[in-house]
Structure formats: structure tokens, C-alpha cells
Amino acid sequence: MKKIGLLLGMFFLLASNVMASNWKAGHVVMIAFDGWGAYSVPKAEIPNIRQLMSEGCYTLKKRSVLPSSSAINWASMFNGAGTEIHGYTEWNSQTPEIPSRVVNKHGVFPTIYSLLDEQCPLAETGCLAEWEGIKYLIDSLAVDYWGLSVNYEEQPQRLCEMAEEYIKSKKPIFVSICFDQLDHVGHADGHDTPSYYNKLNELDAYVGRIIKVLKEIGIYDDTVIIVTADHGGINKGHGGKTLQEMEVPFIISGKNIRSGGEFKESMMQFDTAATIAYALGLKQPQVWIGRPMVQVFENK
């Protein structure tokens, strides 16, 4: 029995070493803000995000897919494809309105979590969010940990606290942390308003806390950090075709990421999943149309 256990242990160690040889980093942490328009970045304080921008690469011109609303773009962010292929077409879609072009063993369109589940089954993965709608878009059967923070109006720090606890305890290979608060302020008080920037500054502080945890547990130097969004907004809404609604930031920093500043290449929402897959050495399915932003990596 001991010999079998030893052999299995050696097998998994060898397998993990082979996988790691293709990886650009041992961990990817994606922090995403619902309703964060790129137009706001030059006007906001956000010191922690600016530090990531100065140490890594970024664009303020990543475009959402249309319509520029939530479920559609969260799906594209995780699914590596656009509306016409994954089939989620409404702001609150829970199942595709158009049949997905391809489905996986769980009966859903393949997501970044699906790829990790199939290609690196031992990898710990998590998704934490303030909007329950996210869980319908990620292939929840492929995720090791799903955490929902409710009532964030009264407990705005709760999602950050949950993320800190989860990262400390599990050191996930990939985790996405999805904040809904900025979108809520955009709808209630308006985008590009003092309230909007106050909330954005609060969210920046949470980014700083998550970075601090990564350093405390000793994985910061082996981590790629992404900060991005699903869509922007104008006045008190979104879903339209203005650049205020469609252009969102994409910031990437950390292990094997160049200190290249702003990159000029075109980026779409579905390129996010492709870039995460590239960082973790995953093979994309043919149905994905996302392109990894290989230019931001030092060792391509």
C-alpha cells in the first residue's frame, strides 16, 4: 500500500512539474470590477492599481462585446469567445439564449475553469463574487470553491475579507474576485460622479489588501495579477455602443510580465480568458476565438 502511495505521489509530482514547465507563473489572481469604465482611470487616485500599471503592462482600450452589459461580458471574459458563440445575450443571462456552439462534459460552454479542471485536475481554483449571476457563467462544476458575498451595501469589505481568507488557506492556482459595488454606484448616482470615484478608491484599497496577502503567504513573486472589468457606463446606465460603455481597463503585472507600460495592440473581452490560459500553460479549445496578449510576457 505504501509503495502504491509513493508511486502515485511521484506520478503527481512529475505531472505537476511537466505542467509547470509550460506555465508563466504558478498562480493567477484576477480582480474585476463590474461597471469600471476606462475613461475613469486618468481621473482616479487608485495608487495600488497605478503601481501595478507601472510595474507591468496595461491597456485602457480593451473592448467589451455587445451588448455592453454584465452577464454577456462576464461570460466572454471567462469563456474566451463572444456572444454569437457562447450564446449568453442578456445582461442577466443564466443559460444561453442561443445554443452554445460547443458544450463540455458538464453541458456548458468551456470556460477557463473548465480548461483547468480538464488539463490540471489537481489545481485549486476559486471564484468569489458579489453578484450571484456570475456562478451561471463560469462552469461551476469545474470550480473548487464558489463564494458569494451578500448584502455588500452594509458589509462592503466582506468580499475582500473572503478573498483574503481563501487565498491564505488554499493558495489557489487561479482565483477570480468579482466586485459589483462600482456598477451599483453607477446606476444609483451615475458614472463619472464623485460617488463613483469614491467607490473606485475604496476598491483600490481592496486590491492593496489582496496584494499584501499574496506577499504574506509567500506567493506574490510567483503570481500574475490582473485587474479588469466587464463594461463601463454612461450617465446611470450601460448596454449601448458608446466608448464610455465599451472601453475597460486591462492591467497585468507580476511573474514573467514585462514592465512595458501601455500596450497598443487591440484587445477584446474574450482575450482575457486566452491570456489567463496562456499564463497557466493551458491549451485553448478550437471554439475559443480569444487571443492571448503574448506581448506582455517576458518569456513568450
Rank of each mutant, 00 (worst) to 15 (best):
R63K: 15
S149C: 04
M267Q: 13
F174I: 06
A163M: 03
F78C: 02
H187K: 07
Y196H: 15
A229N: 10
S114W: 09
W23A: 13
D204E: 11
I219C: 13
C120I: 08
A279F: 13
M19C: 02
N151Y: 07
L137M: 01
Q244T: 01
Y197T: 00
N256G: 07
S259M: 12
G240L: 13
M1K: 05
L128Q: 00
H191S: 04
S140T: 01
P67E: 12
G26S: 07
Q181L: 13
V294K: 15
T125Y: 09
S54T: 13
S54K: 15
T89V: 12
T83Q: 14
I217Q: 09
P121I: 03
N198C: 05
L66M: 15
L60Q: 06
L282S: 07
G190H: 08
G133E: 08
G147E: 05
A205L: 14
E55W: 10
K61I: 06
K171R: 14
L148H: 11
V224S: 03
Q286F: 11
C57F: 12
I276C: 06
N299A: 04
T59Q: 07
S40C: 07
E118T: 05
I134D: 09
I31E: 01
E130K: 07
E216G: 02
Y39H: 12
K283N: 15
A38Y: 08
M10E: 01
Y166I: 01
S259N: 14
D34Q: 11
